[in-house]
Each structure stands twice: as C-alpha cells, then as structure tokens.
C-alpha cells in the first residue's frame, strides 16, 4: 500500500521533475563544469584549466564595468519602480472617477513585450527626430544624444525599465490593498491618525509580504531582463550600458568563448543565490504574514 503510494507520488512528480532537470538543473551543473575548462575549438573539447577562467574574470575590466553597471541598474530601478508602483496603487485604490481607465493605463506597459517597448522608447530617445528632443527643443533646450552619450545611456535605460516595471508591481500592491480590512483604517481614523501615520504604521507594515515578493521579482528582473539592449544600445557606447547577462550573451554567441560565458554565468548564479538567501533567510523573518 505504502509502496504503491510512494510510486504514484513519484510518477506524478516525474513530468515536472524531468522538465526542471532537463532545462534547469542539468544546465546549471554543466555550466559549473564548463567553467573549469577551456572553450572547445573546432569541435575539439577544451582542456581542464582549473580556476584560470575565474582568475581571468578578476582581471577583466569589462566584467567589472558590466557588474558595476548592473549594480547601479538594480540599485536605482528596483526601489524607484517599487516606490512608483506603490504610489500608483494607492492612487488608483482611492475612490476616484474613471479609476478603471487609470488602472488600465498604468498596466499597459506590462502587457507589451520588452522588444516592442524598446522600439517605442527608441523613437523617444533618437536624436534629431526623437520625441524627447523635439519637446526639449520646442521649449528652448538643447537636445541630447540619449543613447549615444556614455553618461546618459544607462540612465536612459533605467527610466524605461522603471516605466515598464512599475505598472506590473502596481497590480500586486493593488491586490494587497484591496484585500485589506477597511475597519483597520476606520479604527485608525477614529484614533485621529493622519494619512502619513496611517501609511507608516498600518499600510506599509501590512504590505511588507507584497513588498518582499516584488523585491525578489524586481531584483531577478534587473539581472534577467536584457531584451531592450538588443534594440536600444547593444551594450554601447563602450559598454556604458552593458549588463551582466548581455555580456554573457556576447561572450557566448558573438565571441564564441563558451567557457568564459559559462564562468560568468556561474558568477551570475552565485549573485542571484546570494540575493535569494538574503531575502528568504533574513528579510522574511522581519515580515508579518497574516
């Protein structure tokens, strides 16, 4: 009896396990494995070279630049999109006329594919004919080469990312706000708590589980979403807007240095694991769950 139950359980798990193993676990292991070998050349498998690839990473200026870029990219876009999404959610959760339209408007960037979004923003950012420069010039300011200037390329990407992500996170905040017990707010109102006190002492703590969930997603996205780089900057100029995953892609499929790409991927996985550990191991204990 017990044995057949066990067998049934494993059989039911098998399809999902097989898919996960084929597309997640085995690639992870083979990536780690490959990072200790040379890249295969002309079909000949590469030699075992120990930690040489990792030593090379430490000396690779582009890697450090890309990592630094990604660090700034996450540090700016994650809090900015979370803050913006929370403000939008509180705004569209209040009793205002036409709020369904506003909710839809805020959510629209999310349903667009990243490639389409990048093409729209390419039109905004393009010098000469771009929307932003046309507006600036109409107001008497000088237009900028938004994607061509090394100082402006990464911030321009950040703005677009925040625009794209905030609407998605707003949905989670909105759902959390709508499931809240309104009598808590009435109790706070009777105690004469102002808007800011109510937000600080009630709304924000009760939204923490949602915020943690969004934080995890936003951080993973900051490392994972690079589709827009293909359209907008291709990491340029001079790697000013390059991000870690795009750099891995370049190494693997433009430079065909698969071993180095595997090494960089191992480092990316390590960073993501570290973030996950921090979030679930540390922040999770500080959050009140209902």
């Amino acid at each position: 009896m017990n044995r057949t139950r066990q067998l049934h359980a494993w059989l039911l798990l098998l399809p999902a396990l097989a898919m996960l193993a084929a597309f997640t676990h085995i690639p992870v292991i083979s990536t780690l494995f490959n990072s200790f070998y040379e890249s295969p050349i002309a079909g000949k498998p590469g030699q075992f070279i120990g930690a040489d690839n990792f030593r090379f990473v430490l000396d690779d200026d582009i890697f450090w630049k890309v990592l630094w870029n990604n660090f700034w990219y996450a540090l700016i876009t994650v809090p900015a999109s979370i803050a913006l999404s929370l403000i939008m959610a509180i705004w569209v959760n209040s009793r205002l006329s036409g709020r369904a339209i506003i909710r839809l408007a805020y959510f629209t960037p999310t349903v667009l594919p990243m490639i389409a979004v990048a093409n729209i923003w390419l039109f905004f950012y393009t010098p000469e004919i771009g929307l932003i420069n046309n507006l600036l010039e109409a107001l008497g300011f000088e237009g900028q080469n938004w994607l061509g200037d090394p100082d402006l390329a990464l911030p321009s990407l950040m703005v677009m990312t925040i625009w794209k992500e905030a609407g998605f996170f707003m949905i989670f905040y909105l759902a959390a706000l709508q499931s809240m017990d309104t009598s808590l707010y009435e109790a706070a109102a009777i105690e004469n708590a102002g808007r800011w006190q109510t937000f600080k002492r009630i709304t924000w703590p009760l939204l923490m589980p949602t915020t943690l969930f969004i934080l995890i997603n936003a951080l993973i996205n900051a490392f994972k979403l690079v589709d827009h780089l293909f359209i907008l900057t291709k990491g340029g100029p001079n790697n000013a807007s390059n991000l870690l995953l795009y750099y891995i892609y370049e190494n693997a499929f433009s430079f065909f240095d698969t071993a180095y790409a595997a090494t960089l991927t191992s480092i990316l996985l390590f960073i993501l694991a570290l973030l996950a550990w921090f979030q679930f191991g540390f922040l999770d204990k500080k959050v009140h769950y209902r």
Binding site: S183, E186, E191
Partner: peptide
C-alpha cells in the same frame, strides 16, 4: 472611541502596541 464587530486590531502589532496606538498618535 469605537469597538468594531471585527475588533479591527492591527495584526502586525502586539496587544500592548494595539492598546497604545491611539495614545501614541495623540
């Protein structure tokens, strides 16, 4: 002051913090 049907206690605050909430606000 008001006592609600659902009690309207703040779930993330302790009993003491719940009781003192209004006095702190005021």
């Amino acid at each position: 002051t008001m006592v609600f049907q659902s009690y309207a206690l703040f779930p993330h605050l302790t009993v003491q913090e719940n009781i003192l909430f209004g006095l702190q606000v005021r």
